[in-house]
């Protein structure tokens, strides 16, 4: 499938645009956010401009609390775009960003993309197949691993495809709930793992009301995009998906959200057909 160009019948937006808009909505309205490489930068910028948001967006290159000005010509192209030097409250280095800020406990939420996700919200950014004899290499984790390990909450963005929503990630670069309740605590991490996943079909939470120690810690379908049959979500998921008792329908994007997200990606760096 190529969800990035696919639209819902009658809709004037693509599923990929919807995914980025909904990820922006799922971000908290305050606190400190560390944006990972790729779509998180677009969604984070949208969140700052579309909502009256007190969220402090940061990237691992060392730009803290970037405030995009109203007429900003684009979302940062990557986490290292030089426009982050205009409008941040602090620009510093990676030891500060991924050490002092993140490992020091100052990041309230991380927003992440990856190549694969599994039922426990683990992410894979490194390799397809066995690490020692890979079918395919990927670029690597960048700062994805530490954000997944160390941010107090995590929201992931992941196109809904069967090859991406897999039963078990080929290589767990970025721990979610690892293999179930209590696993993060046993590994030496804070028990709270990922909170939300936003795909091209809907929104997921995790079945662990106390934040990681009890219940199944599996992904649960909470909401689907407008006019989308919840059954297609299972068809593009590689394990028997847990589904909430009542599956909400997500509000369609507003004109403001759509206009902004298109304006922020003038070169189709983020929402190019064929890539995310």
């Amino acid at each position: 499938m190529s969800e990035e160009t696919e639209t819902i019948p009658g809709a004037d937006y693509t599923l990929a645009e919807m995914m980025c808009v909904v990820a922006a909505r799922e971000l908290p309205r305050s606190g400190v956010a560390m944006l990972g490489m790729g779509l998180p930068v677009l969604s984070g910028t949208l969140a700052k401009l579309a909502y009256d948001s007190d969220l402090r967006i940061c990237t691992e290159v060392g730009a803290f609390d970037w405030q995009p000005w109203p007429e900003v010509p684009r979302a940062p192209i990557g986490i290292h775009d030089l426009i982050l030097n205009h409008g941040s409250v602090m620009v510093t280095d990676m030891v500060d960003a991924l050490g002092t800020l993140l490992m020091g406990g100052n990041a309230d939420v991380g927003l992440l993309g990856a190549a694969q996700i599994d039922r426990f919200g683990n992410l894979n950014t490194l390799v397809m197949g066995d690490y020692r004899a890979p079918e395919r290499r990927l670029g690597g984790t960048g700062g994805n691993t530490e954000i997944a390990c160390l941010a107090k909450q995590v929201v992931s963005i992941m196109p809904q495809e069967r090859r991406r929503f897999v039963d078990r990630v080929d290589f767990n670069t970025s721990p979610g709930y690892i293999d179930g309740p209590g696993a993060r605590r046993r590994a030496g991490l804070q028990p709270q793992g990922p909170n939300r996943v936003v795909s091209t079909f809907g929104v997921f939470s995790f079945d662990t009301p106390d934040g990681g120690d009890t219940d199944s810690c599996e992904m649960v379908l909470e909401a689907v995009f407008p006019n989308l049959d919840p059954d297609v979500v299972q068809a593009e998921t590689g394990w028997p998906l847990k589904v909430a008792e009542t599956v909400r329908e997500v509000e369609p994007p507003t004109n403001d959200e759509l206009t902004l997200i298109r304006r922020l990606d003038p070169y189709h760096f983020y929402l190019t057909p064929g890539r995310y």
Partner: peptide, 29 residues
């Protein structure tokens, strides 16, 4: 990872033999 390389350079600069991190815990690395 990005954090690891940055910290490893920092350790090199500080003249200490290694530096601990809480990243990577629970991962397949």
């Amino acid at each position: 990872s990005n954090q690891a390389i940055a910290l490893m350079l920092m350790a090199g600069a500080l003249g200490i033999p290694f530096i601990p991190t809480r990243s990577f815990l629970g991962s397949d690395y």
